[in-house]
Design a protein around this nucleic acid. Structure first.
Lengths: 141, 141
DNA sequence: TTATCTGCAAAAGGTTTGCAACTGA
DNA sequence: TCAGTTGCAAACCTTTTGCAGATAA
């Protein structure tokens, strides 16, 4: 986890009277640098593989907190909810439909769109495609 | 449900050796003309309010079938999965964050986007805003 | 006629909550 | 010090499955 992200999240926690603890830090270390959409279970297993022991409850509590804070997004894929950390800047997602890798796109391709009687408050663009690594694998098959 | 949509879905069912039955038809009658994101429970309750009796299992089975067929989309909102029927043509969604009304936008605002090493296979654009009806309600408060 | 479908009840999963021990500020 | 946190176990919900009777083609 980058130092500035840790500081940023610690600050948002403190503003809500919450504390930055060892389990939270360990979870964030992993989650903020994870590139793939993961289920809560997978996140826990991945973290335990690094010989770090935290509880599933903590994973759920952190995911819920980060969702509320707008720092995480959930996708429903094949009936499973999968999560990705979203750095604070507004951005778009490029999702590989094969390996579920997520790339953040900061160069906004749609700006100030107004449609019909709707006042647009926010918009999200999610591209689903094949990442370069999965493309290579396909050629080799 | 429009006649052409019923015919279209009946055909896709038959192609998979499935049957268009009374409960399926009753569910589709309601779901294909529903404008708001709904949970499976809500769909069942709404249908029962019209004095039509089908089981929750049928609702789930139809939602799963329609998702697979690409005729329904699920959004995770406040931890709840909510569904909307998607007519076969490619389109975008305009979602009211207050009342969860969904409007289909057929005029594509993003075309043939290519980013980094990704080959784009499909893209989805979902706008979240306030619909005109909710805007009016807000002014009156 | 018969393969598919339905709805119930039960099972299975995923997520949240209560609580006693623990810990960061 | 003590309010907030943790992880376990239990509770809770949502979703799926098994099955016997019903039904579309």
């Amino acid at each position: 986890m980058q130092k500035n992200i840790e500081t940023f999240i610690t600050d948002t926690l403190h503003k809500k009277g919450m504390r930055m603890t060892r389990p939270k830090k360990k979870f964030l270390d992993f989650f903020t640098s994870e590139e793939y959409l993961k289920t809560p279970q997978e996140l826990l297993e991945n973290i335990k593989q690094h010989n770090i022991d935290i509880g599933l409850t903590t994973v759920y509590r952190m995911l819920n907190y980060l969702m509320e804070a707008g720092l995480t997004k959930a996708y429903s894929i094949n009936g499973e909810l999968r999560y990705i950390f979203c750095p604070p800047d507004h951005h778009y997602h490029m999702i590989c439909v094969k390996c579920l890798r997520v790339k953040n796109i900061f160069d906004c391709p749609v700006k100030d769109v107004k449609v019909d009687g709707f006042k647009i408050q926010s918009h999200q663009v999610d591209f689903f495609g094949i990442c370069d690594e999965c493309s290579k694998k396909e050629v080799n098959k």
